[in-house]
Amino acid sequence: MLNQPARSLGVHIILIAYSALALGPILLVVMNSFKARNAIFGAPLAPPNATTFSLVGYAKVFKASLIGTYFANSLIVTLVSMFLVLLFGAMAAWALTEYKFRGSTALALFLSIGIMVPIRLGSVAILKMMRAAGLNDTLTALILVYVAQGLPMSIFILSEFVQQIPKDLRDAARCDGVPETRIFFEVIAPLLRPAIATVAVFTIVPIWNDLWFPLILTSSDSTHTITLGVQQFLGQYITDWNSVLAALSMAILPVVAIYVIFSRQLISGLTAGAVK
């Protein structure tokens, strides 16, 4: 308990000030994206009103870019990658935790290299490989890279969760005659659901926001993700403030909406996956 009200007030003032600093720039961009050009420059800090309200920027973004396609691409890439990272990650985490065999510790170490070493440094060879495999400029290439990128961290996090599942459960399943594969898919996997939030923070967010791999692996407009698409659009229309602000807002708003809906799970996932 903060016994002195004055000190409590001080703490709140600091936190409110910092929250304003965190939220202000985002609000400013979103707010001005709904205003006409004159109002953007005339009174940047004023919210849109009846006279200044305008959707001209949004209309331009829809007309001049494939924003819907970008969005769909990002959704496909992120969801498919997440599914595979979770599935393969959970399977590997279970096998490494549950079955000991010669070399399993070495394998676990090998898999953990990717936690610390960014996959980006292999870009030169990745691009060559994708070109050779004919996967250049496809969403498949992005998915493969993102799965490889997400696996080490997800195996690490999921191993922690697997270890928290009581050992008696798999013993009971074995006494019950449940085959080993079914033990994973029907007993263990359903119990890993709470881990999804934690894995999401560490894998989905970087995938959704990544600029690097779309930049080097996709060249045509139809395979751009939202991050790259918006980046290219912004570069092209840099002087058209309405369009720029609208494009930024359209990239911000879905993320903020999803974040607000799931923030409790995401944050509890983050603090659970953390670390003493």
Binding site: L84, L87, F88, G89, M91, A92, L107, F110, L111, I113, G114, V117, I119, L121, G122, S123, V124, A125, I126, K128, M129, L144, V145, V147, A148, Q149, L151, P152, I155
Partner: peptide, 16 residues
Amino acid sequence: PAVAIYTLFSIYPLIA
């Protein structure tokens, strides 16, 4: 699956 994808698209490119 995990080892194959990870090795092929993360470790191999680094070494290459």
